[in-house]
């Protein structure tokens, strides 16, 4: 099936199998490999992207469902070569170790800060319910998001 998707500001048009998951379309067809696959049960959040401005798990969407939509991935978060405050925050506060969950964490946090620019620690932790990190114990991820919240 033919789909038209705007990803990180660029229009793309491809023929995909209906069963192609959006995450595989992004990774395999568009070669945007910053979006990761960490599980097969929609639980880990490593594949989080923004679909029409909202954080979604791209492993739980068919590429055909994204037809006509705008997608932002981690690769599209920085603007004009400037890191997004969250990207900066994760660097400044050591919010990542192996980096595998990081794109998903950042994309989820971006959705949180859009709706709640000054979240409490508890609100940040609650917002990360759908994202698993095995390296950091979340301590510095929370601080990274607080850093971005201050900056934004």
């Amino acid at each position: 099936m033919k789909i038209n998707v705007k990803v990180n500001g660029t229009a793309h048009s491809h023929d995909v199998e209906p069963r192609t998951l959006l995450v595989h379309y992004l990774r395999d067809t568009l070669r945007l490999t910053g979006t990761h696959v960490g599980c097969d049960t929609s639980g880990c959040g490593a594949c989080t992207i923004h679909l029409d401005g909202k954080a979604v798990k791209s492993c739980t969407l068919l590429a055909v469902q994204a037809d006509g939509c705008e997608v932002t991935t981690i690769e599209g978060l920085a603007t004009n070569g400037n890191l997004h405050p969250l990207q900066e925050g994760f660097h400044q506060e050591h919010g990542l170790q192996c980096g595998f969950c990081t794109p998903g964490m950042i994309m989820t946090a971006a959705d949180l800060l859009k709706h709640n620019p000054k979240p409490s620690e508890a609100e940040i932790r609650h917002a990360l319910e759908g994202n698993i990190c095995r390296c950091t114990g979340y301590h510095n991820i929370v601080k990274s998001i607080q850093y971005a919240s201050e900056k934004m």
């Binding site: 991935t73 981690i74 920085a78 660097h91 990542l96 980096g99």
Partner: peptide
């Protein structure tokens, strides 16, 4: 090493 990880440019 952070930059490649926070920009989605790491290479797993």
């Amino acid at each position: 090493e952070d930059k490649r990880f926070i920009t989605g440019k790491a290479n797993y």
